[in-house]
Computed example of a mutant assay.
Amino acid sequence: MKRVAMVGVGNMGGAMCQRLLEQRWPVQIFDIDSAKMAALQAHGAVPCADAAHATDGCDVLIVCVVDAAQTQEVLFGPRGAAAAMGAGQVVVLCPTISPADVEGFAARLAERGVAVIDAPMSGGPVRAREGTMSLMVACDHAVFDEHSAMLNVLSGHIFRISEKPGDGARTKLVNNLLAGINLAGAAEAMAMAQRLGLDLARTLAVIEQSSAQSWIGSDRMKRAIAGDYEPRAHVTLLQKDTRLAVEAAAAAGFSCTLGPVARDVFESATRAGLGGLDDAALFRFFTARR
């Protein structure tokens, strides 16, 4: 059982940390929010002063922050982890970031003999806490084998994408682009149902058993009907992910039709002041339109 460092213990990272602690894995943590660290310390996590100290004596560092800028800070900032790491240690990159950023981070870490597991995640905090979330893994086979026990504790659905860091990010962006398209469509359809005077719960029940069903549509529209916009996944996350997906498509020479539409919906919802809410708030965005 290896010693794990985890930087970023918010909704997803905190749930993953609790899962590891429950399974008796030793975990050292750092987050800019001291209250989050204190809550996990009560469960056995060891809080650290910064990302560099979190890696002390650890075999693997899990980075679970929001975007590439935060990942850059965690790894290569003034108190970043990379300077304190060396040959044989491994970094697991869980944020949804661009393939180019994953490749760049992997190349810089390789100079120090540090391997990268490109492992973006999907499933939300509840599944992360249960160990049933999905991981899209791209890394060297030997590195995967060495850390498979930890990955299997965290994920009930590990998808081996390739040996090339960056391919996990590409797969996640494909998934999240479709998730964004599905969610935008579900929110607009349910807003239309409300304008038509239909009972929303009954309408959603029909959709869930018919051709328009999607997991994210059902999950988020149930929250929307209940007026529950407490953030599990902020609107800004799919705003970022749909933008990155469209950019990745363009870089590959593929012209998206629906992707830019979904991207613009999330961008508009954020500009409308909904960015800090759960992405179920797309329903509120569409119902406010005239």
Rank of each mutant, 00 (worst) to 15 (best):
D219L: 14
R220I: 06
R220Q: 14
M221Q: 06
M221H: 03
K222C: 09
R223F: 08
A224E: 03
A226I: 00
A226N: 04
A226H: 04
D228Q: 10
Y229G: 04
Y229W: 07
E230K: 14
E230I: 06
R232K: 15
R232P: 01
A233I: 09
A233S: 15
A233N: 10
H234M: 15
V235H: 03
V235T: 07
T236R: 15
L237E: 05
L237A: 10
L237S: 08
L238P: 01
L238G: 00
Q239V: 01
Q239E: 13
Q239F: 05
K240S: 04
K240G: 03
D241A: 10
L244E: 00
L244G: 01
A245T: 02
A245K: 02
E247C: 03
E247I: 04
E247Q: 14
A249V: 04
A249Y: 06
A249D: 03
A250F: 07
A250M: 09
A252Q: 03
A252H: 02
A252V: 00
G253F: 09
G253T: 03
F254P: 00
F254I: 13
S255T: 12
S255E: 14
C256H: 04
T257G: 11
T257S: 12
T257R: 14
T257I: 13
L258K: 03
L258Q: 05
G259D: 06
P260E: 11
P260Y: 11
V261S: 08
A262V: 09
A262D: 07
D264S: 13
D264Y: 08
D264L: 09
V265R: 01
F266C: 05
E267L: 12
E267S: 08
S268Q: 15
S268H: 15
